[in-house]
Design a protein around this nucleic acid. Structure first.
Lengths: 328, 328
DNA sequence: GTGAAAGCGCTAACAT
DNA sequence: ATGTTAGCGCTTTCAC
């Protein structure tokens, strides 16, 4: 079988292609009878417009691009799910590509987006991306780019982030409400914008409390976090461990379980997470919520704005809230 | 700025569009000098072919469709990541859509795939889909459909599954190697093909061992699994709990932790999983591996075959292997 | 070895 | 109210 086209319909009905096209769009010029005849036949033949032809002609597609380092990640997957859902409701489809944190692949993916004439792209930068040179062409072509989560430092672009500073502040406040004296804080890849922001905010919050010992470490993966944590705990048992992310938390939890430590009795735990992992354990881990879903919804809404009217580059924040598990 | 087209290049070089097109494709007719001139200019102008125009003309796109009930799922996310990666390496992009287990949305998504002229689609059926009527048009149009994970019962379609029967058999064998006398087996949604297969295989394996008590329950979500498990444990403490999936396992683990039970001391645990969740805990949970990654790679390879040559509908299996944690 | 021309399916300005 | 025409960017047959 082959696809129904406007031409086919027009031939059967003995009218012109343009009349068919207009009728299907409820153009006011077309007479009611013609319109109904056309729509009826289109339905029986199950007419489905060729998106490629439409895009070629009109220059705007109902396709959006979305790029993340990897899809299989507790946070991105909820972000993607949220964007896809809202996109669907608005008639858009989403083309998803992974960079694997490789700037070269990132650049090629942008090219793929362009070739497929996406109307806009969501990007979470690869951790190894040094500058925005590969994005220049997107800007030139005026394809809206909304950066999320790991965003560039440059201003003048659309960014939408979790309230990184605030979430670290919230964490600090919560810690200060307890009599903890020594803190081990483990962060992720120091090259990421989220790492920098969270780390700076946490440090800053403890500036006024010099009597509290704050030890900061970094780990690029769960495995590294596990090792780092092991090492640190062998030297000294802190009152509380703060984890910047799920990746870190997973490593820390392994170490804690292996060492037979129990929280909150032997040690307290606090993390920043979307909640999936913290809620898996018992007691649940207390966390500052960073919702991929909220971020996704906000990002899509912003994209819609960008596509409708040229708006100034903005930096949006999605608020952070505390979820009280039982880990401190 | 606007996109570079063949026409633009041809005008600058004072040659025809067709020559430019051929030169870019290394057509043997074109002289070396012309070819190099063209390629060089194309590079400086950063020429990127318009995928929509190409598809319109040639009728084949480098776009694949992929539909799952939801992206945010431990298993699907690795499947998707694997498919996307291999697709990328072969010059394909992937359009991802979620059905939310709604047959209506599923049908609309198929339409979206068609309109965007995908060259093939991967589908994990929604749990509420009763028949393949919405897929008829795909078959008519000869767009290859590769079903995976939750596949239709009908024969005559491409299916690629985990070795569901074998994984349940493996589980049974492992259980029988221990002196366990009472088993609680919790399965997922009974409407799913994977549930049916796994359940039948497990039951079957214990047919020859009537002295062993096998209690079977169902749960459609982690929360339900938690409740079911609570209820069951209140009545009687089995020697081992078998979980059909991560969803079930998560609920079971919550109940076990809440009740202060310890595995493998008080109760043994066995699950089917891709490993992410089982490895989070300590001791790690023993599981039969169902790798979304392997399935994804196999599915993509099969899709490539389908697209190159018309092959007979086949049912492929991805093997199951045992990972020994410490939970029994 | 290169060009002219047709056409994929659609839309929209311009007739009539 | 409807048809004619042109053209989006590309590929490909046919001609020279």
């Amino acid at each position: 079988m082959t696809n129904t086209t406007l031409k086919k319909i027009s031939e059967i009905l003995g009218i012109s292609v343009s009349t068919v096209s207009r009728a299907l769009k409820h153009h006011p010029d077309i007479s009611v009878k013609t319109r109904e005849k056309v729509i009826e036949l289109a339905r029986t033949l199950d007419y489905e417009p060729n998106a490629n032809a439409v895009q070629l002609r009109t220059k705007n597609s109902k396709l959006l691009g979305l790029m993340v380092p990897t899809i299989s990640n507790y946070f991105y997957e909820t972000f993607i799910a949220a964007v896809e859902e809202d996109a669907r409701k608005n008639g858009y489809a989403v083309m998803i590509l992974q960079s694997g944190n490789d700037p070269l692949i990132e650049s090629e993916n942008l090219k793929l987006f362009r070739q497929n004439r996406v109307s806009g792209v969501f990007v979470c930068l690869s951790s190894n991306t040094k500058d925005l040179s590969s994005f220049e062409k997107m800007f030139d072509l005026e394809i809206p780019v909304v950066f999320f989560d790991n965003v560039p430092q440059e201003s003048g672009v659309h960014k939408i982030c979790l309230a990184d500073e605030k979430s670290a502040q919230l964490a600090a406040e919560l810690i200060l409400q307890h009599p903890y004296q020594s803190i081990l804080a483990i962060f992720g890849n120091p090259a990421l914008s989220i790492t920098k922001k969270r780390e700076a905010a946490l440090k800053n919050a403890f500036q006024a409390h010099p009597h509290i010992s704050l030890l900061i470490e970094h780990a690029n993966s769960s495995e590294e976090a596990k090792l780092v944590c092991h090492e640190m705990l062998n030297k000294h048992l802190p009152d509380i461990i703060f984890c910047m992310s799920d990746e870190v938390l997973i490593g820390v939890l392994k170490t804690i379980q292996e060492k037979g430590l129990r929280y909150p009795d032997n040690i307290a735990l606090l993390t920043i997470s979307n909640g999936t992992i913290p809620r898996l354990f018992h007691p649940q881990i207390t966390y500052i919520e960073t919702s991929g879903e909220k971020l996704g919804k906000a990002a899509f809404a912003h994209m819609l704005n960008c596509m409708q009217t040229k708006i100034e580059p903005t930096e949006l924040l999605v608020d952070a809230v505390l979820f009280n598990g039982g880990s401190l």
